[in-house]
Nucleic acid binder design. Structure first.
Length: 269
DNA sequence: AACCTCACCTGCGGGC
DNA sequence: TGCCCGCAGGTGAGGT
């Protein structure tokens, strides 16, 4: 579910609500939600720690504690919700709850794919991730150089978190549409101008989605439990058979790398 | 390296 | 109403 814009929206909400708070209790209701260490260690090590920072790296939420980092990956249906302690009973899929004084930070996750990890240093844990698409150091020239070395379909490459961190199935389709590039094109076949267009589309599409507080198709909610609004402005994702907003051609759906893929065969080349 | 399928899970909507 | 099927924003493992 959540891709870069959704995780960024969650992180901004968390940062405002829980930075500086101390973890006063931990309840693990679904043990496999804790990737590392074992659930009892996880709880024991967290209690008493202060949350110093909340950041995003790719699709990971990274909470900086005093001697460790708490990582969360929401996968398909995970949510990180800040609720008053009295209100948690209304949630149906609570896997982990962190008490923060009179607030609860709830890890809610219907499909149980999401994971939390308590690690000594998040940087090591995340070292294999590719560059951040919104980082100023991520330039069009750098992208073009790395595209040249790969023959994978460009969409599959955009979904590879080691190549680029944070893009998922929705935004890969939207970005390629914005850049007028067919998802099946081998990455190395992109011209310099196309690489430039792809770079620009990554910036603008991801920024627009963040401004709209993310895409809610079903499960995504921000830290306050609010839906995003970007689903109303998607141009191709989920729109099979509808007219392309740019050229009027019919949006097509295909399978690519095992995922549903939407594009306009008329104006994406 | 590239490509495939399966596994991990639950819930929802469509067709009958 | 109920059952079965296919589908879902992600990723990692294992095979060819």
């Amino acid at each position: 579910m959540p891709e870069l814009p959704e995780v960024e929206t969650v992180v901004r909400g968390l940062r405002q609500r829980i930075t500086g708070r101390t973890i006063t209790g931990v309840e693990v209701y679904w043990e496999r939600a804790i990737a590392t260490p074992c659930p009892s260690e996880f709880a024991a090590q967290l209690v008493g720690q202060r949350i110093r920072s909340v950041d995003r790296r790719g699709k990971f939420v990274v909470m900086g504690l005093e001697g460790a980092d708490l990582l969360v990956h929401l996968r398909m249906t995970g949510q990180l919700l800040v609720v008053p302690a009295s209100q948690a009973h209304a949630l149906r899929h609570v896997r982990v709850a962190l008490a923060l004084g009179d607030l609860l930070l709830i890890f809610n996750d219907a499909r149980k794919f999401g994971r939390m990890a308590l690690v000594p240093d998040a940087r090591q844990w995340l070292a294999a991730l590719g560059p951040e698409p919104l980082d100023p150091d991520f330039t069009a020239a750098a992208l073009a150089a790395r595209l040249q070395r790969r023959r994978l379909p460009i969409k599959s490459l955009l979904l590879d978190q080691r190549f680029l961190a944070g893009v998922g199935n929705i935004y890969a389709d939207e970005v390629l549409h914005a850049a007028c590039i067919a998802p099946t094109r081998p990455a190395s076949s992109l011209s310099a101008a196309e690489a430039e267009a792809l770079h620009a589309a990554l910036q603008s599409e991801l920024q627009r989605a963040i401004a709209n507080r993310g895409t809610t198709l079903s499960d995504y909610r921000d830290a306050e439990g609010h839906s995003g609004a970007h689903q109303h402005t998607l141009r191709v994702y989920g729109r099979e058979g509808e007219p392309c907003p740019r050229c009027g051609g019919a949006i097509a759906r295909m399978r690519l790398g095992g995922r549903s893929s939407y594009h306009c065969p008329r104006c994406q080349r």
